[in-house]
Simulated scan of single mutants.
Amino acid sequence: MSKHIPNPGLGTFRLTGDTLHHAVTTALTLGYRHIDTAQFYDNEAEVGAAIKASTVPRSDIFLTTKVWWEQLEPAALKASVDESLKKLGTDYVDLLLIHWPSPNDEVPMRDYLTALKEVKEAGKARHIGVSNFTKAQIDQAVKILGAEEILTNQIEVHPFLQNRELVAHCEHHGIIPTAFMPLAVGKVLEDDTLKAIAEKYAVNPAQVAIAWLNQRGIPTFPSSTKEKNLKSNLDALKLELSQEDMDAIAKLDRGERVASPDFAPKWDQ
């Protein structure tokens, strides 16, 4: 199975109720084919209902969910995946991720990655991968599973946290880096450099950030709820930034991390 992740996707973190339902059904109508959720988001049942309500067949949708770090002990992991599938109303997900590595290796990585692979072998996930793994953790995961088994490392990447070393490290192993929080919780909209580039192309700064990721070969899944913004994110993939613009954005990297809970690993930067 070739390594491919539809871009862009729709992120559903913090979306619930009618807002979530509208976002998912609108995105699918507009042409999105990748929906990203997680056990931790507590909205899998609502995501599943919205997918079912859509006219797009389940087989055309690339659906991602993630196992929470408190469920990494193998039996708990497998039970939690069954619960996720039940909530999502599907027999399988297209991508199943470890949301965060086990803090301080409380559950050995070999144990939970082996369980993850067994879930895939049981037909409950088409692809498996990881999220928030450092370079050293990626190396460890590759030793355990082999690089060909790991579709992606889903990490925070935006103009203010460009994560170039980790991105290159994943690509070296043939693992696709994917970007969450591509708009840095809206901060890209306020940046003067991004605003100036956006003005040049008659687009908005969010589109510049998505186009920048696309040119780096990094699929992403911004969380948007309005039809106008969902369409704008799709249109961003048609935008081609000049090398001058890419160089200007490269200078915005300031190691500004949005997602760093107390159970996070020791970051590379």
Score class of each variant (00 low, 15 high):
residue 1 M to G: 12
residue 3 K to Y: 01
residue 8 P to L: 04
residue 12 T to G: 00
residue 14 R to N: 10
residue 18 D to F: 05
residue 20 L to S: 11
residue 22 H to E: 12
residue 26 T to S: 03
residue 28 L to I: 07
residue 28 L to K: 05
residue 29 T to I: 03
residue 29 T to G: 05
residue 31 G to W: 02
residue 33 R to F: 00
residue 33 R to I: 00
residue 37 T to N: 14
residue 37 T to H: 09
residue 46 E to F: 05
residue 47 V to F: 14
residue 48 G to Y: 04
residue 50 A to V: 06
residue 50 A to Y: 09
residue 50 A to H: 13
residue 51 I to S: 07
residue 61 I to F: 02
residue 67 V to C: 02
residue 69 W to G: 00
residue 69 W to L: 06
residue 75 A to W: 03
residue 85 L to Q: 05
residue 89 G to T: 10
residue 94 D to C: 04
residue 94 D to R: 07
residue 103 P to W: 07
residue 104 N to A: 14
residue 109 M to V: 08
residue 109 M to D: 09
residue 111 D to L: 05
residue 113 L to Q: 15
residue 114 T to C: 10
residue 117 K to H: 13
residue 119 V to L: 00
residue 121 E to T: 12
residue 122 A to P: 10
residue 122 A to E: 10
residue 122 A to C: 12
residue 124 K to G: 08
residue 129 G to A: 10
residue 137 Q to A: 13
residue 138 I to M: 15
residue 142 V to A: 13
residue 143 K to A: 09
residue 143 K to T: 02
residue 148 E to L: 06
residue 149 E to Y: 13
residue 152 T to Y: 00
residue 153 N to P: 06
residue 153 N to F: 04
residue 153 N to E: 01
residue 154 Q to A: 03
residue 157 V to N: 08
residue 166 L to A: 10
residue 169 H to G: 04
residue 170 C to P: 14
residue 170 C to D: 15
residue 171 E to C: 12
residue 171 E to H: 09
residue 172 H to Q: 15
residue 174 G to R: 04
residue 176 I to A: 06
residue 177 P to R: 00
residue 179 A to G: 07
residue 180 F to S: 10
residue 181 M to Q: 11
residue 188 V to M: 07
residue 190 E to K: 15
residue 191 D to F: 06
residue 193 T to N: 10
residue 194 L to R: 09
residue 196 A to T: 14
residue 200 K to S: 11
residue 203 V to Y: 08
residue 204 N to W: 03
residue 205 P to M: 11
residue 205 P to D: 04
residue 208 V to M: 05
residue 209 A to G: 05
residue 213 L to A: 02
residue 214 N to C: 11
residue 216 R to E: 12
residue 216 R to V: 11
residue 216 R to F: 01
residue 220 T to I: 07
residue 220 T to W: 08
residue 221 F to N: 05
residue 223 S to W: 00
residue 226 K to W: 00
residue 228 K to V: 01
residue 229 N to G: 09
residue 229 N to T: 01
residue 230 L to M: 10
residue 231 K to V: 00
residue 233 N to F: 02
residue 237 L to P: 05
residue 238 K to G: 10
residue 239 L to C: 07
residue 239 L to V: 13
residue 241 L to H: 06
residue 245 D to I: 06
residue 245 D to N: 02
residue 246 M to S: 03
residue 246 M to H: 01
residue 247 D to H: 13
residue 247 D to M: 03
residue 250 A to N: 15
residue 251 K to L: 11
residue 251 K to G: 12
residue 252 L to P: 04
residue 253 D to W: 04
residue 258 V to K: 00
residue 259 A to T: 14
residue 260 S to M: 04
residue 261 P to W: 15
residue 263 F to M: 09
residue 267 W to S: 11
